[in-house]
Computed example of a mutant assay.
Amino acid sequence: MAGRLMKLAFSYLGLSLAIVFGFIFIFLEIASELKEKELEEFDVTVMTYVQRFISSDLTELMLYITMLGSIPWLTASVIGTIVFCFLKKKWRSGLFIAFSSGVGALFNMYLKDLFQRERPDIKPLIEEEGYSFPSGHSMGSFIFYGACAFLVFHFARRWKIKIAGSAALFFIIFMVGLSRVYLGVHYPSDIIGGFSAGGAWLAVCVILFKFYEKKERISQ
């Protein structure tokens, strides 16, 4: 049994490193070009294009969508999901949500303080405080909704529910990121950076979840 557990641990460690390095490579590429200001033309071009579609109705919709990635909403959603998981006796799932989102929030704070990028000043439709890179809304949404998508895909019995549920949650992630660009409070590279950092951390959490799940099966 010890040999099987050791082999399992090394296989999952290798998988986690491969996935994490992929996301980290993307993030570091963005961060490197960010310091050299090579992304400025890309960011301005994309923001200018997106904001061509500004209208009162679309702004109202984007304000609702961006709320889905806000700290109050995500905090309440995380707590609600944890309580639901515990009531369903899904202790591991509840801890998975708590750990991924909780540590992910601290990770985002660290990265913002590390890069200290100022927010864009291109037709902002709302006021936001704090640094811009990576986007907290995008990173937090990727981690929480991505974690929920994983649980839906993991536990749902019907493939239609697996695919539809996961697709809907990832569509929310995409729209939250788009809303931040539309509202003029983040550069597109902030969104990509948030998705990359969030994806890297979520990948680690998913692999840990799967590892302990299989470890328990072997130990039984």
Score class of each variant (00 low, 15 high):
K90W: 13
S101V: 01
A9M: 14
T81G: 15
M6Y: 05
S196C: 05
M47T: 08
K214M: 11
I122C: 10
L74F: 02
L13E: 02
V152E: 07
P188N: 07
L61N: 03
L15N: 00
G22V: 04
L169F: 04
V103K: 02
Y49I: 13
S179A: 15
R158K: 14
A203S: 15
E128P: 11
D121P: 04
K112L: 08
E60M: 09
E38C: 02
S93G: 07
V46I: 15
G140L: 11
R117A: 07
S70L: 08
G198T: 01
S56G: 03
S138K: 04
P188I: 04
K7A: 15
S101T: 10
A200R: 00
G146V: 09
I161G: 02
V46S: 04
F25N: 08
L183S: 05
S93K: 00
E40D: 12
K160R: 13
G80V: 07
K89G: 03
E38A: 08
V50N: 09
K35S: 12
K37Y: 10
H186V: 08
S219F: 09
Y49N: 08
F25M: 12
F53V: 10
F133V: 09
K112Q: 13
I172G: 04
F107P: 06
M62T: 02
D57I: 04
G69D: 07
Y145G: 10
L13T: 10
L74Y: 01
I24Q: 12
R119Y: 05
V206L: 08
I192M: 15
I172T: 06
I122G: 07
G146H: 02
F209K: 02
I82N: 03
R92K: 14
K7W: 06
T45C: 06
D121E: 14
Y187W: 15
M67G: 14
Y64C: 09
F211K: 00
G165I: 08
G94D: 01
W91M: 13
H154P: 08
T59Q: 13
R157C: 12
C148N: 00
I30N: 05
P120K: 00
M47E: 06
E216W: 04
M67T: 09
M175N: 12
S56P: 11
R119Q: 05
F209E: 02
Y182Q: 05
Y212H: 11
I71P: 14
Y182E: 11
G104S: 02
G177M: 10
S16A: 14
R117I: 11
I19M: 15
E33M: 10
A168V: 11
K7P: 01
I161W: 12
S55P: 11
G136D: 01
T48I: 05
F170M: 13
F171L: 15
M175Q: 10
L178S: 03
L61P: 05
G130I: 07
L13M: 13
L13H: 00
G194M: 06
M67P: 00
S11T: 10
F142E: 07
V206P: 06
F25W: 09
V103T: 13
I79P: 06
G198R: 02
I19V: 14
K88T: 04
I122Y: 12
K160N: 12
I122V: 15
S55E: 02
F25Y: 14
R117Q: 08
I218G: 02
F195T: 03
